[in-house]
Every structure is written in C-alpha cells, then in structure tokens.
Design a protein around this nucleic acid. Structure first.
Lengths: 244, 244
DNA sequence: AATATTTGTCTAGTTGTGTAGACAAATATA
DNA sequence: TATATTTGTCTACACAACTAGACAAATATT
C-alpha cells in the first residue's frame, strides 16, 4: 500500500514537512537503526506519491538536523548522531539541548499530589508522609520525544509549581519563580531497562527498545534537596556524557 | 507585545494555519466565550504581523469548522457550535464524533495496573482487590481536546488492551480485538466540576472552566460489565444529549 | 573497463501562500 | 441622514512549494 493518501495537499502544512515528520518518526521509533540505508529517493517519491525533488527537500531537512547522511552514488543513511547529554553538577535539560537543536520544549503530561514513601522521603530529606507534588514531563527535541521524567517536589515549598511549569515548559524557570535562583545535581544514578509499554507510546519508541533510567537529586545553594527526578531517556537518541 | 515573532515563516507550516491554530486554542481555552466579538481583521493582522488577507484565510478555516461566524459590517464572533454528544445505550465516542468533525483521534495519556477499590469493584461486578487495567485517554477533535477519560477493565479478561488501544486509538476496536463484538451503556451518571489543574493542561482549558464529569458502566451482551469510564468533558465544547 | 545505480544540480512551468491596494456591501454611530 | 467602521470581493504581484525532465558526479556491479 502506498502512503499517498496520508499526505494532505493544500492543508497549510507543506508536503516536504509532512514527509519529513513521517520519516523522522519511523527512524526515531527504531524501525531503522543507525547506519541503515534508506530506500532510494526514487522509491520514496513513489511511496509518498510526490516528485523526487519533494522527497529531497524532506531529506535535506532531516540531514540538517543530523538525523540522516546522504552519500552520492551510495545512498542515504541513518546517521542518528546521538544527542550528547552531559551529566554533571550543572546539568539542565534546556541548556544542554538548546545548543544542539532547532527547537525544543517541555510538555506537562500529568501531575499529582502524593505522600512521600520511604524512598522519596530519603531522597528529598523530608519525613515519610510529607505531601509532594509530582510533575510528569515529556521533553521533545526537533519533533522527537527524548526524555520522560517524573519530578517530585515538596508541596509546601512549591505550591504554584504545576502552573509555573505549564506556562514556561521549563523546570529551571518554574523553580526560579519560586525563588530558587540556582541549584546543582548532588548525585546521579544511571541504569537501563526495556521501555515500559506506556512510556513507549509517549516516547514514540517500539516496545522492545532500551531506555536509560536516570535518577538525580538536586540541591539548592544551602545543600537542601529541592527536587528528585526519575527520567527515562530514549537510548537510541541520546548519549550520556559523564564529565570528570 | 506583538505575536509576530511567534510565527515561523518558511517552516513548512503556512502562516494562515499557524494563526488559525493559535486563535483556536485561545477560543477553545475559554479566553473568548460564545458570542464574543473578535478583534477586527485589521487589528488581528497587526497583532500577528501579517497581511489582512492572511488573517482572513485563518478565519475562513475556523468558520469552515464551525468555530467562528463572520457578519459583514458587524464583526467576527465566536460561534462555538457545541458538539452534540448523545448519551444512550449505544454511546460510542468515535461514531458520535465522526459525523461532526473533519478529523479526530484518541491518544493514550497513560496506563496503569491497580487493584479494584470498593467503588470500582461494585461498578465492574468483581471482588475488591481484583487487578484492573486503567487506561487514561485524551480524545481530540479538529485539533481541540474534548474529553479526558479514565477507563477501567478487568486485567485477566483484557491482557493486551493497552497495546491494542495504542495501535487503534479506539476503545471499541480494542475491545473487538479481545472478542467483545458488541456492548451497551447500562448506566450513565452526570455531574459538573471546575476543572482540575492537571486536567486543564491536557484539555487546554483555563483553570476556572467547568467540565462535565460522566461516569458510565458498559456491559456486554450477557449483561456482564466490561468497562467503567469516568470522563471529564470540556463544557465549553460539548453539549450532552440524553435521548428518551 | 563498461554499465547500472544513486545522489547532486540545473532549467522551466504550475500551483499555493502571502502582500498590497482598491472598492463594494452591510452595519454601527453621530 | 451622513459618516465611520467592518467584512466581502476583486486585481496584481512576489515568493515558496511542487512537478517534470535532463544531465552530471560518485559509487556499485558485472
């Protein structure tokens, strides 16, 4: 079956962009792994029911953002060029990504109020049973979801956090609004798992792909923990860099 | 401040579409209520930093989908034309909406496995403590989120439900895949509340807007409950119709 | 070495998008 | 009633998006 019918002409979204987004989601979901050769421009043009030049423009856009690499005479390949994600005391998602992408943003997936269990209480240095705010966020870079994170905060210290995050799309900015001008990572723990089914949906991964699981405790300038994060990061898109 | 900088020229998304989407989200979030007059085309053109004709095209698109109504000499008004949502034994979200919209779809927000509390156990006619699957879904019509629903199913009867829903975007189809060819609503209970903060984010509502809360028990042909739903429906976009 | 395949570049023509200005038609206002 | 305001329609132009075809350049295949 051709995908021709899936392309909306005259919809206000250019064909090359629709095709680029479709190709990106197929690459990024792990259907094409690093180094894989794509179908030829001629085949792609037929598949999408457009002119070869239109496909070339889509490929140009994906090449620009580092996802593809085209070799004259050989073909077009998945470059994947994993985003470098340095882990250190000054780790900030937004600052890391800003230098490596065209556009990015954080979206609030859900939020909840819940009591601290023993584990969370220890991480945040509060008494078990203390009311916490949980913020579930999805960070998207150049149209591809990168990380899915649970963030916990002490509710009494950050009552307006959910609204501030929803407005700014940035935890750093939401904390600033609550008077936390600076903070640093005290500890980062890293492991890896096969992605959960519900996480796979949000991260646009196929369900057999690995994710890195990163837990981090962030402290303010007085060494007081202000938030604890548990992030799932699509391993096919990110390379963690631990500096020393 | 003008919104001019927010518009991406040459991004592959036409200006008229970007403007239409921005206007839709403002209308739909309740910032403009039914019958409100919009700024004049001239003012909108200045605000978005584009020609008046471009704004007119955006308005034409929103008029087409029934969100606006333009009166020559008077101005352009929010029509809102609430979507009619009939409540009855054969209530199916997808079938209702298909006839009243250009495009629609269900998205999986999250899912979980949890034990039935006393209330859920009674709704689903199972023992308290029975393992359930909870599916949280967001239904979007013509780009505007309409309903946010928690759906509970008995886990042992529907082990592959989450994957089936993620694939099809339809609960009816996911149940079909599990052998439930037909079902009907046994009971529907309706009330209204001010929207939760986290629900407001997903439904793209301002936090002071009301939502209708609809609880429904669905039974199969042998009167056996197969799923219980608790949906929050944006009151500014939907009118419930109870037939008798 | 000869041929086929595949990406890169060029020209030309059509359609879609956005700008600019003028004027008509309907309504509101003084 | 006269005037201003606001939406509706028209023409004209510039540029972006897409199509069509041809040929060059690099690589793979035979």
């Amino acid at each position: 079956m051709t995908d021709e019918l899936a392309m909306d002409r005259g919809s206000g979204v250019a064909l090359w962009r629709q095709i680029a987004e479709k190709m990106r989601s197929e690459i990024v979901s792990g259907q094409f792994s690093e180094g894989t050769r794509l179908p030829t421009e001629k085949d792609l043009a037929e598949r999408f029911g457009v002119n070869r030049h239109t496909v070339r423009r889509s490929i140009a856009a994906l090449t620009q953002s580092g996802l593809l690499r085209a070799d004259q005479g050989r073909g077009t390949f998945v470059a994947t060029s994993l985003i470098r994600y340095p882990i250190g005391p000054r780790t900030r998602f937004s600052e890391i990504i800003a230098g490596q992408s065209q556009e990015f943003g954080g979206r609030l997936v859900s939020s909840a109020h819940e009591e601290a269990d023993i584990f969370l209480a220890e991480q945040l240095d509060v008494a078990p049973g203390t009311m916490l705010v949980r913020l579930d966020t999805l960070n998207v870079v150049d149209g591809a979801p990168l990380t899915l994170a649970n963030n916990w905060f002490e509710q009494s210290r950050f009552p307006r956090l959910v609204a501030d995050y929803a407005e700014t799309g940035s935890i750093t900015k939401a904390l600033e609004a609550a008077g936390i001008s600076d903070y640093r990572r005290k500890e980062t723990r890293i492991t890896a798992e096969i992605v959960d089914l519900q996480d796979a949906v949000l991260l646009e991964l196929s369900p057999d792909q690995p994710v890195m699981v990163v837990e981090a405790v962030n402290v303010d300038t007085r060494e007081q923990p202000n938030h604890f994060t548990r992030a799932r990061i699509a391993a096919s898109r990110v390379k963690l860099i631990v500096e020393s």
